[in-house]
């Protein structure tokens, strides 16, 4: 009796061809999900309301393969490796001057509208110039006191990629 297509898909014969296909799929999945699209779970509220605590996403590593990061991009920043990464928004590029006045972001002395922000902020941070080879990153949750927010300029090389959505 000829097996149906679905039956063969769900209950394949355990032969050499199946084993080969299984190995290929496993290798491809391992390469994709460790090198190209790194899955991660968001822990922390520094990017709320854009990215919620407990949310799930992927780090798209090819994002900056042929393009440079831009202001407004949300990026994953690595520490010693890729198991723990920071999710932050780029607000300043190398050579820019970044400043906060009563919660408002000023880049190169020009007010930057940030429609993604929902919370009021009272941050005040004196102007500082972003060094060559670095970008300035900040979280979207500006309700957190300034001294408790992880923010600042970071080496471009530490950017692992962008978020998928």
């Amino acid at each position: 009796m000829k097996q149906s297509r679905w039956r063969r898909f769900l209950l394949p014969d355990l032969n050499r061809s199946f084993a080969l296909r299984l190995v290929l799929v496993a290798v491809a999945a391992a390469v994709v999900f460790t090198q190209v699209l790194i899955p991660f779970r968001i822990q922390g509220k520094s990017m709320e309301p854009t990215y919620r605590d407990g949310g799930f996403n992927f780090c798209w590593r090819a994002r900056y393969l042929f393009a440079e990061p831009e202001r407004g991009d949300v990026v994953a920043i690595r520490f010693a490796g890729q198991r723990i990464m920071l999710l932050k928004r780029i607000v300043g590029l190398a050579g820019d001057t970044v400043e906060f006045r009563n919660g408002a972001l000023f880049v190169n002395d020009t007010w930057v509208k940030e429609p993604h922000l929902r919370s009021p902020s009272d941050w005040n941070l004196a102007a500082r110039r972003v060094e060559p080879g670095k970008v300035y990153v900040v979280g979207d949750n500006r309700i957190v006191p300034l001294d408790r927010q992880s923010m600042g300029q970071v080496e471009r090389a530490r950017i692992v990629g962008g978020v998928l959505w």
Binding site: F79, A80, G81, Q82, R83, I84
Partner: peptide, 21 residues
């Protein structure tokens, strides 16, 4: 501790790098 790498071990000396959470 995450991504802990022992970068080198030589002559009773070692260099370690990692992320602490």
């Amino acid at each position: 501790l995450h991504d802990t790498v022992i970068e080198r071990i030589e002559d009773k000396n070692a260099a370690v790098r990692g992320t602490i959470r």
